Deep mutational scan, measured.
Amino acid sequence: MSIQHFRVALIPFFAAFCLPVFAHPETLVKVKDAEDQLGARVGYIELDLNSGKILESFRPEERFPMMSTFKVLLCGAVLSRVDAGQEQLGRRIHYSQNDLVEYSPVTEKHLTDGMTVRELCSAAITMSDNTAANLLLTTIGGPKELTAFLHNMGDHVTRLDRWEPELNEAIPNDERDTTMPAAMATTLRKLLTGELLTLASRQQLIDWMEADKVAGPLLRSALPAGWFIADKSGAGERGSRGIIAALGPDGKPSRIVVIYTTGSQATMDERNRQIAEIGASLIKHW
């Protein structure tokens, strides 16, 4: 067993022997301040990774656009098919120029040779490549099948209805392509620590998230040296922004954090800054 596999296998073990965790309302004060600064709703939840206990939450059962955070769930569904012998990570998928959609920095470079399922998941999570996500959605049967996968996990809230990039439209009061912070946090925890996926697939999923290259201005910008984070960000229309993450000190994750916002007129930089400040408060009061 590799060191990384050992780390993920012992996530519940280490967490069980940690000192009790206590909620700190100071972080919620910052979440509410972010709402004021952005002029928009902000949803927040913080779960203990081992027990699933909610440590703090704000608007945990209000719907927010998922945006690209759905790509972690998508690759979880792909990995479940791999575990069941219905898919192979090494299978190569070929596609054409007509398949390319807006923001496809990886797939646009491989029109000639195609990409493997493993490479597509890596591109979808680490670079948020939209064509990679659409190609992977095709392998599982489309958005409705991802929703069905989530329902089978016990998540009857999260739903995907459309493809990239239309799913980022974020129309107010439109339930399409949305989740709730509580539902997303619980589902992410199941994917990373539950028995739904094999140990190898859980490790692969967290490795992809740990290698995320496009979430630097968010929670990662607030992390002290030595902290662990595996995350996936999302951005959408109407001032929408979000991030889902597993993080913790001492090089291992111990909490799940989900943050979503929508309806702001603020710039992307300002949305990023507010999420980073929430992260800084979380870490300060850990």
Rank of each mutant, 00 (worst) to 15 (best):
P25A: 07
L28I: 15
L28M: 13
L28N: 07
V29Q: 14
V29G: 15
V31Q: 01
K32I: 13
K32E: 12
K32A: 15
K32S: 10
E35K: 00
D36Q: 15
D36E: 15
Q37S: 14
L38W: 08
G39D: 14
A40I: 05
A40V: 06
G43L: 00
G43F: 00
E46I: 08
N50R: 13
N50V: 12
S51R: 08
K53H: 14
L55M: 13
E56R: 09
F58H: 12
E61N: 12
E61A: 12
E62F: 07
E62W: 06
E62G: 07
E62N: 07
R63H: 09
P65T: 03
P65E: 01
M66K: 03
M66V: 11
M67F: 05
T69G: 01
F70D: 01
F70L: 06
K71M: 01
V72D: 01
L73E: 03
C75L: 05
G76D: 02
V78Q: 04
L79A: 04
L79N: 03
L79M: 12
S80F: 13
R81K: 12
R81V: 07
V82H: 09
D83I: 04
D83Y: 00
G85Q: 12
Q86Y: 15
Q86N: 15
E87H: 05
E87G: 05
Q88E: 15
L89C: 05
L89T: 06
G90C: 08
G90L: 11
R91S: 07
R92D: 06
H94V: 11
H94L: 12
Q97P: 14
Q97I: 13
D99C: 05
Y103F: 09
S104N: 07
S104P: 02
P105V: 07
V106E: 15
V106H: 08
T107W: 01
E108L: 11
H110D: 05
L111D: 07
D113N: 12
D113K: 13
G114E: 04
M115E: 02
R118G: 14
R118N: 15
C121S: 04
C121H: 00
C121P: 00
S122M: 11
S122L: 13
S122F: 12
A123L: 02
A124P: 03
M127V: 14
S128K: 02
S128R: 02
D129T: 02
A133E: 03
N134K: 01
L135H: 04
L137Q: 05
T138W: 14
T139W: 06
T139S: 15
T139E: 15
I140E: 04
G141R: 06
G141A: 06
G142D: 06
K144L: 11
L146S: 01
L150D: 02
H151M: 14
N152L: 13
N152I: 12
G154W: 04
V157W: 11
L160M: 10
E164K: 01
E164A: 00
P165K: 07
P165L: 09
P165Q: 07
L167T: 08
N168T: 07
E169A: 14
E169K: 12
E169I: 10
A170E: 07
I171S: 15
D174T: 05
D174K: 03
E175F: 10
D177V: 01
T179G: 01
T179P: 01
M180Y: 11
A182Q: 14
M184Y: 09
A185N: 02
A185R: 03
A185P: 00
T187D: 13
T187V: 08
T187Y: 02
R189C: 14
K190T: 15
L192I: 12
G194D: 14
L196D: 14
L197E: 03
L197Q: 05
R202L: 06
Q203P: 01
Q204W: 07
M209H: 00
M209E: 02
M209R: 00
A211C: 14
A211W: 09
A211S: 13
A211K: 15
K213M: 14
A215C: 04
R220T: 03
A222P: 10
L223F: 04
L223G: 03
P224R: 06
P224W: 03
A225H: 12
A225C: 11
A225Y: 13
A225W: 10
G226P: 06
G226H: 12
W227N: 03
I229T: 02
D231V: 04
K232G: 00
G234C: 05
G234Q: 02
A235G: 10
E237S: 13
E237M: 14
R238Q: 13
G239F: 05
S240A: 13
S240K: 05
R241I: 03
R241T: 06
I243D: 04
I244Q: 01
A245H: 00
A246R: 03
G248L: 00
G248W: 02
P249D: 08
P253C: 09
P253R: 09
R255G: 03
R255I: 04
R255M: 06
I256W: 03
I256S: 02
V257H: 01
V258Q: 03
Y260P: 02
T261I: 15
T262K: 09
Q265H: 14
A266E: 15
A266P: 06
A266V: 13
A266Q: 12
D269S: 12
E270Q: 10
R271I: 10
R271Q: 11
N272Y: 02
N272W: 03
Q274Y: 10
A276W: 08
A276L: 09
E277T: 10
K284S: 13
H285F: 11
H285A: 09
H285S: 11
W286T: 03
W286A: 00
